[in-house]
Amino acid sequence: MEFFAFFYRLAFYGEQLFHHLHGWSDEANGYVAQSDRFPLIFSVTLGVCFLAFILYYFIIDHPRANRWYFWLIPLGVVLFTGFGLAFGIVRTDMDSGVIAESLSNDIGMGNAILFGVYNGLLGGIFFLLLSALFRFPSRNSKHSPWPLLVTKLNNKGIKNYE
């Protein structure tokens, strides 16, 4: 499960919260795979990213929605969902008291919000990467939010209108 934890290593949201989400157990004095929250959080965040990407670029793909400001809508959905999911899981754990005693004193609301922001940003970055790399087959929205690099390069050879 180290793969999923890898994406959450930059633990500016709190070292203790990282350990908790990774599945720390005082009883086991180590990480318990069944308690690892990262696979779920990561999968759902990534799934939402994919869904937003597919919806925007290939299902809706509307010629009137191919502006950069329309692209902010799925991005916003990804950020909001990522935040809500991460924050919600931490809050639920805090409320239900499942956090190991050795960690619980150092995990508060601030950490939950920061983790929400972290996960939201992570989702946003994935969405950005998907948009940058895989939007080219889209019929109407392939140049949203900015024109494809390959198009710019191709167009360099075309002379301006005289």
């Binding site: 191919n66 019929r139 109407n140 949203s144 167009n155 075309i158 209108y161």
Partner: peptide, 23 residues
């Protein structure tokens, strides 16, 4: 209102220069 955003124009370099031109 559309050519700046649409692939049919961007991909073929049908830009402002072209649309404001004589042709």
């Amino acid at each position: 209102g559309q050519y700046k955003y649409q692939p049919w124009a961007i991909d073929n370099k049908l830009d402002e220069n072209f649309f404001d031109g004589d042709y």
